[in-house]
Design a protein around this nucleic acid. Sequence first.
RNA 1: GCGGGAGUAGCUCAGUCGGUAGAGCACCAGAUUGUGGCUCUGGGUGUCGUGGGUUCGAUCCCCAUCUCUCGCCCCA
Length: 413
Amino acid sequence: MIQSIRGTKDILPTEINKWHYIEDIFHRVSNLFGYNELRTPIFEKTEVFSRSIGETSDIVNKEMYTFTDKGGESITLRPEMTAALVRSVIQHQLAEQSSILRLWYFGPFFRYERPQKGRLRQFHQYGAECLGSPYPEADAEVIILADLILKTCGIYDYDLLINTLGTNQTRIRYRKALVEYFQKFKNDLSEDSKFRLETNPLRILDSKDTGDLEIIKNSPNILDYLDEESLNHFSKVQDYLKYNNIRFTITSQLVRGLDYYCHTVFEFRSKKLGAQDSFGGGGRYDGLFEQLGGKKTPAVGFAMGVERLILILDNLFKQTKDSCDYYIACSNPEFIKVGIGIQKKLIENNFSTRIDLMRRSLKAQLREANKYNAKYVIIIGDLEFKNQKFILKDMQNGTQKEISFDDIEFLVK
RNA sequence: GCGGGAGUAGCUCAGUCGGUAGAGCACCAGAUUGUGGCUCUGGGUGUCGUGGGUUCGAUCCCCAUCUCUCGCCCCA
């Protein structure tokens, strides 16, 4: 048997209603906030991601689906959206048309990882990006949007963690202090963290290694290194969130894996997910446009993992029952022609219908009508057919009456 | 990429100390000489994940592999 690729999933008819449900919310709520949808190709030149996400990140190092196409170009299936979105905005000069550009997106992404619950090789993200504003209002707006999306979906049981990475100067000073501190414990750090010490010391804070955690406990706190600008920005964001009754926890170890973040970073977590407890996150990335060859454009945004979202709200979905307005049953295959005609007429008038395609007994057809929760069954039987009539049976109360073929119009009124 | 668990019917699972399998639900047919739901009766629909090995014989034991799953890692 040929199987789907490891870490990829078919979305079957039985679960598609969940996707429709939440895609509709993405669409609606984003639009209410004035965000417009942007769709980009699922592959890009590799440099779009290697130049933005960070050479030291695992995503770029070992998780990208990268290949050389027949023209000799290095191509990568997008592992995230922000870089691709920024590329598109620069290319089409979208940011030139107005001071603020609000965009949202939804689509598949690809990372070569070891699959697990809530972690796939092809997965879907929804996200929104607010481009053009350096002010904390924009940070707050995207968080409020993300929060409202979740609540509209019916998700209330989650934690919002926020932190700030501050300005460039802040990060440089903090980084220096971190390196000094961790150097003292270098021999006790995990292998991964020793490596991070050389490449990206901030990310040591993300470690879950119990030994590392002990050391991290007493490490310098970024909140003590914030300059005035960083401090103001962060406290304003908090103000706005509090004013909107959005609960959050300041987590100074929250760093996030991508290199382009500055100032506000945040993450949504749920206890229902196990090891992959984060189902959304984002932050400010004022430097990314320049990194990708564009004009300096302050920006902030977030992304959510849709499969993880569905895992969280899975128990909110009841099994949706099949239903239809009319089921058309024929006692004899000869009458199917007439049945199909009636069906077409009904469908043209927006009635949902089903008709037997297995030439089964009348009893079996009625059984099926019941399975589909048909409101009415149109029965074309031998007796009636002779008189150019059919039976209209009400499945709720079991009553039925004869209707002449000429009076089909009666049904659609 | 590393470590642990699992894979038997459409679904959830039982089972064979090695002799090619069963339950419930679902599905199909009949009881009902044209008409559903409830009830009753009958029907197993399966390459026991895949490939190899041991054996007279493997779904069971051994090896490999694939997929899922839990954790590491990473992140959404």
